[in-house]
Amino acid sequence: MELVTLIGAITVFILAIFLGFELITKVPATLHTPLMSGANAISGITIVGALIFSNTDFNGGDPGLAAWLAFFALILATINVVGGFAVTNRMLNMIAGKRGGK
């Protein structure tokens, strides 16, 4: 990694933190759990890393320790993502579904 890439990444990191602080201001108590659950599903973005490292050659049939770890990470991340969004959706439907809206 070159220095310029690193500084670019750190810039993005810091700015996104500020963005996160500003994004959530007043949240009604009703939405605390769904919001937490939805944010949690988004943090499953680590699935991208798991995907990249799961893409390994099977040299002689055994992908090796690193690939198995990545594979396991992929399963967990997918559970996090799919389960997270589905559960959030279920909660929100129950809350919002009863107000005559959609």
Binding site: I17, A39, G44, I52
Partner: peptide, 29 residues
Amino acid sequence: IAAAFTGFIIGNNVLIIAGSMVGAAGLIL
């Protein structure tokens, strides 16, 4: 935050953005 650090490992901005944003928003929540 863990996902954001993973973003640094693979050099991928979407992980850094989504991860640190969730980290900060989670702290506010």
